[in-house]
Amino acid sequence: MHVVVLMKQTFDTEERIRLVDGKIAEDGVKWIINPYDEYAVEEAIQLKENQGATVTVVSVGNENTTQALRTALAMGADEAVLIEAPELTDERAIAKAIVAYLKDKSFDVLLAGNFSVDNGAGQVAIRVAHALGLPHIAAVTKLTIDGNQATGVREIDGDVQTVTATLPALFTAQQGLNEPRYPSLPNIMKAKKKPLTTLTLSDLGLSSDEVAAKVERVEVTLPPKRQAGQKITGTPDEQAEQLAEILVKALR
């Protein structure tokens, strides 16, 4: 079985966002594998351990992205591919680059995160699947692969759905799918020797016209800062009484 995982490097979720000259400052930021993609990587490695599989991790990014790819290799992925195209910001273009890489590859399972915690558009993986003619089950909290059949469990508006799909197919990972492992030191050392291929858009036969952005960011703003409000004091009974009054008023 060949499992391909799409992943992205993002800011650590404990980072605050700072603007410098109207742009998001990246200096001194701690970078991580997008948490949802980390579930996808872990799921791929568990498939490898339980059923036997080769795991390829793919990311579109810049040179710095190799860190995240090396982490995935240290977790247990077999090979990594970096599509070095930091100029791509439009999800449509990023999906095109991934499709160009995957279109002549053979694989059974495509995994990705449900969405990225930075841009949060949730487009790339599903665009890729559609372009490759693959079915998908999004936001799975449980995945079972049996031969060429997959069963995914997903929450949708509070309901819990069980969905089957014929492979090859895409599954996007939701929280609760698994608990990603921490790479061990020996595995971090081993990961340094695993293959990591860097490709450019021209390696993939894509012209700059094909991946030209069709949406543009005009402005980034920070939300107004919230101020600490009022402390409610008194005995627990008095505090509860005041809260009840505040709530009744707020919801009137």
Partner: peptide, 19 residues
């Protein structure tokens, strides 16, 4: 639209149809 789950917001313009 929010980015970083609402730690910031971006304003976007679309350059072509369909969208």
């Amino acid at each position: 639209r929010p980015i970083y789950a609402g730690k910031a917001f971006e304003t976007k313009r679309v350059l072509s149809t369909p969208y």
